[in-house]
Amino acid sequence: MEQEWLPLIERWIHFLAGITWIGLLYYFNLVQVPAMAAANADQGGPGGAGITKYVLPRALFWFRWGAVVTWLAGAALLGKHFVDAFTLQGQHVLIGIGAWLGTIMLLNVWGIIWPNQKKVLGLKPADDAEKAKARRLAFLASRTNTLLSIPMLLFMAASSHGAGLFS
């Protein structure tokens, strides 16, 4: 009984956290970035300071911890096949490619996006030039994760729905 429930619960947590993480990634790229550009270009408008002060810290909290929970639940799901997946062995090639993409994305979140966003948010001291550079780096890492999410989701899905399409 436990052997059937545990993978289901792990998969459930993987989906819930993954939707939180990737949903916020798409929010940043499809909504917030263009909204901030429009707000900054709107002379006499309210500007984007409210988004930076009130929305961004909360979104980044769920974003970065959603990434961690997604990865941990995914690793638990792989279980004894963890090494086979990451070394792209036999039938684990598809999930392995998805797992590698997800891992690179997690490292991007914690290694590039979050450290640079801390400068943008003023949680880490930075002058205006450093903030501008941090904003650009965080933006490019976020766009890279959006790019990587496209094959990542295909390979995650293909590992259990469509493996027969691959030779």
């Binding site: 792209l88 766009r143 790019l147 496209i150 030779s167």
Partner: peptide
Amino acid sequence: MKNPLDSIAGTIISGLVLTAVLIALANALM
């Protein structure tokens, strides 16, 4: 040359190209 990551369309097209490359890699490995 413009960075494709500066636009949503460029990002999506790059993602689709990478998907095609990785499908070829998966087929070669399986």
